[in-house]
Design a binder for these strands. Structure first.
Lengths: 216, 216
DNA sequence: CACCGTACTATACACTGTACGTTATGAAGG
DNA sequence: CCTTCATAACGTACAGTGTATAGTACGGTG
């Protein structure tokens, strides 16, 4: 009765191989047939372990979320929040496919819940009521997701010289009369697209706003 | 050989048709062959007007950005910023495909620049220096993009009863011992995923933080 | 009227995810 | 040992996708 797998495959092995392929070839070029070929197996073999491509995506995402460190226990709550947000961002930068995995599917899975638990626990311990804690959690999550996804997207674009050239071209074709601020701030805009400083700037704005509402 | 007359196509017509299809069938199900069929034309006919699918995406995105209203000129700058962010969010909610169009490609195009110009102009007029204006612009944009994309994504998931049922199931399978905060705050988390209140909550945090840095 | 560039068609290729039916392997029961 | 049976993995097939390449017919200009 023990449903022992035949031989070669397992969920973990498939997830690991899928992750490798996403990182080497990019999340867009990823395909079920690719990971099947990498495993020396027919495409349909994967359907024994995952109902479809999305379920494999979910498994890879949860696997990556499992790599996040625990919340530091011995710090003031704003620093704890900062640490959680920064480590999620760092993980996304180390594994760019995570951005698409997070944005494209609803959150689910054990490890994902663990991360949410960490942040929510910090907010509750800081004294925020249930609604504020939930709202803050959602706000922080969407900020980290949005800003880091954007950063990754732009970095990828910059690596493609053809796309980068055309972006510069359209930027420089803008008339300084119609778009004075855009033209004037173009270098600043390019410089502030991504980077730790940019991320921390927005995060600090959020935390400063949040501290104005500190309870007790 | 019943051949359709010569100049039936145009960029605008293609963009309009593409937008209709994205909104009726969803941005994921959108295909070049679909819009070509809708126009009663072979798939390759579109390549006369757009170099590839991505360029069509860009055109649709820029067309949508053209629908954004101008910045209200007679308000305090925080209210102007709020208005810009809210109208972008509103447009994304009215045209859900815009979320994917914005997230998946770098910004370019005339109308897109116009929107950036509006927000940057407000920030400069408020007295912020070049770097702060650029950073704030990027922060606000990624916040609006991230939070509204997430909201749209979740709303779509909620409409699929099968996916929604499985989401509830995994939520309820979490042990209250391992994930006390998640389990306790589950209803709040569900309630704060999306909605004007949630959006304004995060936006107010950002603006509150920003006002602490008001120049002059 | 002849010409030519342009707008469009036709065909083809290399992919994708996955539904369906078949095979062969490993463990369990006699 | 042999039989039995659930199932892991296979092979085939289908309906799609974007787009490269080559061919065709029309409209405006000489």
């Amino acid at each position: 009765m023990a449903r022992t797998p035949r031989n070669t495959l397992s969920s973990e092995l498939i997830v690991r191989t899928a992750l490798e392929l996403m990182e080497s070839r990019g999340a867009d070029a990823f395909s079920l047939r690719g990971v099947a070929a990498e495993l020396g197996v027919g495409p349909m073999a994967l359907y024994t372990y995952f109902r479809n491509k999305d379920e494999l995506y979910d498994a890879v995402r949860d696997h990556l979320m499992g790599l996040l460190p625990a919340v530091p226990g011995d710090a003031a709550w704003p620093d704890q929040v900062r640490a959680v947000c920064r480590s999620l961002r760092l993980l996304m930068l180390q594994h760019p496919c995570l951005a698409q995995l997070l944005a494209g599917r609803p959150l689910s899975g054990h490890e994902t819940a663990r991360v949410a638990e960490g942040l929510l626990g910090v907010l509750r311990a800081a004294g925020f009521d249930a609604e504020t804690a939930a709202r803050t959690h959602t706000t922080l999550f969407t900020y980290v997701l949005g800003s880091t996804s954007w950063e990754i997207q732009m970095a990828a674009e910059r690596r493609d010289p053809e796309a980068w050239r055309r972006l510069r071209a359209t930027m420089e074709s803008l008339s300084a009369r119609d778009f004075p601020s855009v033209v004037e701030l173009a270098p600043e805009l390019a410089r502030t697209t991504g980077g730790d400083e940019q991320f921390d700037y927005g995060l600090d704005l959020l935390l400063a706003g949040l501290q104005l509402r500190t309870p007790s």
